[in-house]
Design a binder for these strands. Sequence first.
DNA 1: CTTGAACCTGACATCGGTGTCAGGTTCTAC
DNA 2: GTAGAACCTGACACCGATGTCAGGTTCAAG
Lengths: 131, 131
Amino acid sequence: MRIGELARRTGVSVRSLRYYEQQGLLVSDRTPGGHREYGERAVDRVIRIQVLYAAGLNSRAIDSILPCMRDEDGGPNEHATARLAQDLRAERERIDRQIADLMRSREILDEVIAAADVDEALEMSGANAAR
Amino acid sequence: MRIGELARRTGVSVRSLRYYEQQGLLVSDRTPGGHREYGERAVDRVIRIQVLYAAGLNSRAIDSILPCMRDEDGGPNEHATARLAQDLRAERERIDRQIADLMRSREILDEVIAAADVDEALEMSGANAAR
DNA sequence: CTTGAACCTGACATCGGTGTCAGGTTCTAC
DNA sequence: GTAGAACCTGACACCGATGTCAGGTTCAAG
């Protein structure tokens, strides 16, 4: 498939796909004319790249772990070195902290939302709105 | 207390504290000479600001919900309008998705780490390392 | 009064993924 | 062969919290 279709199927912009390639995260064959051509497995790969980006990993980090992933896309499947595993553990901790932070923030939002809902209910019931 | 101490006690840089003030998230009294002076409650407030930043909210969003928070720091404690509550719900969903993404990424990392650990164990035991 | 730490304002830099525009080429279908 | 969609490369802009530097002022302690 070509880049437009890949973009559509993954929900990632064409621009980003080109960027991933530039970062060495994604490869493509080229048509004689120079257009990018992707196999089916590219879809999974792009999605995985997105998940990792969403976790706050940068291109370099993603580049280092992609080859180690159980790849249904048939990559070389190297294994992580002890050194890399160390980095990943640090990354994992960072993610843990981030999840905790997010859950905390969610609680905060819920409090505010709950308070607003009460206000709204009061207004609905015809009571004087708090001000 | 002055800005240096507040920075130390909250773990936030002096630069950031000035930025928060510029964004209207934090207020300070000034000494006759112009130095910022904070009360005890500033500590909690800064920490809450940080939590919200960590959740990916921007200054504007934080500015809008801070006054609605159950404030032990004695702010005016307005209540959220229906409009704001709507935004917050959207924000909440974004956070939910982000948490899900992070957990997914964590799983991915764990797989890679686990594979690396197996390799290491094999090396330790004197077997030929996989290559 | 002096000295050094802490503070002030203002400006500029950074990071990295993504948007967008320009100007040109390729592909597909008629 | 031709039109129009899709693609190519390259370059620049952005966001937004934070780092950092410069040049100057204030504070607290001796």
